[in-house]
Design a protein around this nucleic acid. Structure first.
Lengths: 353, 353
DNA sequence: GAGGGCTTCGGAAACATTTCGGAAACATAT
DNA sequence: ATATGTTTCCGAAATGTTTCCGAAGCCCTC
């Protein structure tokens, strides 16, 4: 008889041992009942275990399971900001495929802050997530590398990577830029300005490249906002509109930027699309509201999320968790964006009115 | 010497033992270094441990920590849908306070489905979250009760509970309804219709009560949408507008419903606010876009989330995890909503133009 | 009528931590 | 000198699972 020191006097959840003894079997058997669906087991013991679980209202401790099995069945999702309407859509896509597969979602938001980025990376590692989806334009490559180096399966969504250290799923941003620009040009605009956020965000740069394949530097000037927050967007748009030569057509690198332009336009008394044709990017929810009616390029956030989750799940299947040697090489999936024509570009008489 | 069977041949993350032996101390000491900030420890050993951790790039295993300490430092947040713009704002509020406190956020979305609701509850219990925030109008009281019964600290946000089994933080929905109704009446509308989602959602019912304290049954008829999804909202609004007596003023129980009405109105050629004054509820992002300019009642989603998280953190502090006997009685916090006047009610000439 | 294959189960080590209860070392008070 | 306390550390039990390996029972087949 040992000392049996109990560190937690009053508490005491029911454990697998309780189930085992009530059912009259060993805990190994109960464990197998819990996990393996195909394990040899008589209908009788199966029934006894079921009854015991039911009666004790037993819930296996996921922490212990994870510790023992070395799989957490959790996947971390890192976004820049939850309130940016683009990300929830992507997260929904992830959730859509991750959930039926039995994974739980750990959410990490890194609001621009470098410290938070490091903290999120640390959390994901410490919690031993089975995989991570990085969907934050603001997370630097270093963070991704750390995760990879820690042996975590990661796929980067809606963001380009300088070195291909992880799977990537993106849309063809150049194509998106081209789509928008072509549409404007087809409708007779000889010039158009590209209203964008900081160009160190690769997506913005690629959209620019697409745009440039249609409008050259001369007839396609740039106007750069400090950030893609609405306030900064509005400010930048205001300065653009107040400039000497007010553009007749604008391609905004995101819907937020586009809304910023609408806001600035409104307060300056210039109207969309009468005075100025506008195309956005992302196709977030707002655009479809009649009063907004934003022509935009759909960036397929939900699909990107779903595809990313799919790749991740598959990779987890191959390389369960701790890195068993040679991983399969990084995969890269490119989805096609799609132009959604509504009123703001002025080519339909479904205008903003 | 025992057999030393290693179940995981190739893998092998660095553990607290590695740190301990490299630093030349016991793992107990390392553990204390990790957790207690105030523990007696010579500067020398502290430095040695720090160096070892650094060198080995050690990341404590949160699963093992949780198992041993019986605290997961995770809190679960359950929302009805991430894509409904109301919830991300609330989640952001939660994150804002939970994160600095060192907690990780487990997200659970229950898209209407009863099965998913049960699954989410199960997940929260199995993962041994230290607390849960339920912010889903669709989760029935049963789910909440299960969590409470499992000894989990839960606070319900933005949702009323029939029996006060858990802390609650809500806004005063009656007041919100009254605010909207009073505004309409003050501007001369003798009648107004309340466009709402299903009335088994208590928030909608309370908003109705507030509305009714201004417009009685005679001059304040109801129009109920099948759900508060945009499609159903639009459909309901269309039938409302196509009815014999088109109302001159509408109070929508949510901004989504309001947008639905705008959409329907647009396609029927009736304009807001010229033909029909409109007030929404929630004050989601869309409303402030000039083309929408929705007068609405701010439901303080972010604050609700933050307050809920605060209460939860405090409660966790008192009742760490496993239920050590008598809990403090459920608390109830009520925040005041606020009317945000923009163009859609027609009282300002900032109309939808 | 012993060997061989299934099927069904259990013992015990392993997983990576925390925490309890000392113990050694040293200083201070009696 | 001996008691008394502080500071700093360690040994070992405990946390709740999974999984390896073996063993017992059973049904066939030579």
């Amino acid at each position: 008889m040992m000392a049996m020191v109990n560190r937690f006097p009053e508490a005491r959840r029911t454990t697998i041992n309780d189930v085992a003894s009530l059912a009259g079997v060993s805990k190994a058997t109960v464990s197998k009942f819990l996990s393996a669906t195909d394990y040899y087991m008589s209908q009788e013991t199966r029934a006894k275990i079921e009854r015991a679980i039911e009666e004790l209202n037993y819930h296996p401790n996921a922490l212990a399971q994870g510790l023992s099995s070395r799989r957490s069945y959790a996947i971390g999702v890192v976004v820049a900001s939850i309130t940016n309407p683009f990300y929830p859509e992507l997260v929904a896509g992830v959730e859509e495929v991750i959930d039926p597969a039995g994974y739980t979602l750990l959410l990490g938001a890194i609001a621009e802050s470098k410290a938070k980025e490091a903290a999120v990376v640390r959390t994901m590692i410490q919690r031993r997530v089975d995989g991570a989806i990085i969907a934050s334009a603001t997370m630097r490559d270093g963070g991704v590398q750390q995760l990879v180096k820690a042996g975590i399966n990661v796929v980067v969504a809606s963001r380009e990577l300088a070195k291909p250290v992880a799977d990537t799923v993106v849309i063809d941003n150049r194509m998106g830029g081209r789509l928008a620009a072509e549409h404007l040009r087809q409708h007779g605009f000889e010039q158009a300005v590209y209203l964008t956020g900081p160009l160190d965000v690769l997506a913005f740069r690629h959209r620019l490249e697409g745009f440039r394949s249609v409008y050259g530097e001369a007839d396609g000037p740039l106007h750069i906002a400090r950030s893609s927050e609405l306030s900064d967007a509005t400010e930048a748009a205001a300065s653009l509109l107040a400039g000497l030569r007010r553009p007749a057509a604008v391609f905004a690198a995101s819907d937020t930027l586009a809304v910023g332009l609408m806001t600035a336009a409104h307060s300056l008394g210039v109207s969309v699309p009468e005075d100025i044709a506008l195309i956005g990017f992302d196709n977030v929810w707002v655009g479809q509201v009649p009063g907004v009616s934003l022509t935009t390029v759909d960036s397929k956030a939900r699909q990107v999320g779903a595809v990313a989750a799919g790749i991740l799940a598959e990779r987890i299947g191959r390389h369960p968790s701790g890195s068993p040697g040679g991983r399969t090489p990084p995969e890269r999936r490119v989805l096609a964006p799609e132009l959604v024509v509504r009123g703001s570009c002025g080519c339909r008489r479904t205008a903003t009115t």
